[in-house]
Computed example of a mutant assay.
Amino acid sequence: MSATKWGVQVLSKVKPARSVNINWEVGKHRNQLELIQEDAGKLERNLQKINYTASEYCKVGLLHHDQLKESDPVVQEARKRMTDEEVQARYFRVNRALLMSANHQILPQDEWTPMDADHNYLQEHLNDARNEMKEKKLMKCATLDFEDRQDRLLSIPFRFMNYIEISRMRQKLKAQLVAPQLA
Rank of each mutant, 00 (worst) to 15 (best):
F158W: 04
M133V: 08
H104E: 12
N46Y: 14
K137Y: 09
N162M: 13
N103K: 12
M100I: 06
R45K: 15
V20R: 09
K80W: 08
Q37S: 06
A40V: 03
D39Q: 00
C58V: 13
N131G: 15
T143Y: 01
L154V: 04
V20M: 10
S101P: 06
L122D: 02
L138D: 00
L11V: 00
N127I: 15
L11Q: 10
K59S: 12
N21K: 07
I166C: 04
M1G: 13
Q123Y: 05
A97Q: 06
K134R: 08
R30N: 08
P180M: 15
N95W: 14
H64L: 07
Q171N: 13
L177Y: 02
L43G: 04
W112H: 12
R81T: 13
M161P: 00
L63I: 06
L43N: 11
H64C: 01
P16D: 09
L126I: 15
E165P: 03
F92P: 01
P73N: 14
V60Y: 09
D110W: 06
Q150L: 09
K136I: 03
M115V: 02
D118V: 02
A102V: 05
S155M: 10
D84E: 10
T4N: 10
A142Y: 10
K13H: 14
W112C: 08
D118R: 02
R152E: 13
S71R: 10
N103S: 11
N131F: 10
Q123K: 11
E85A: 06
R96P: 06
E132V: 03
D145P: 00
A17R: 09
Q123S: 13
K5F: 12
D148G: 11
L107N: 04
R159H: 01
N103M: 12
D116K: 01
F92A: 14
N21V: 02
K80N: 10
A40N: 12
Q109T: 11
L11N: 06
T4H: 02
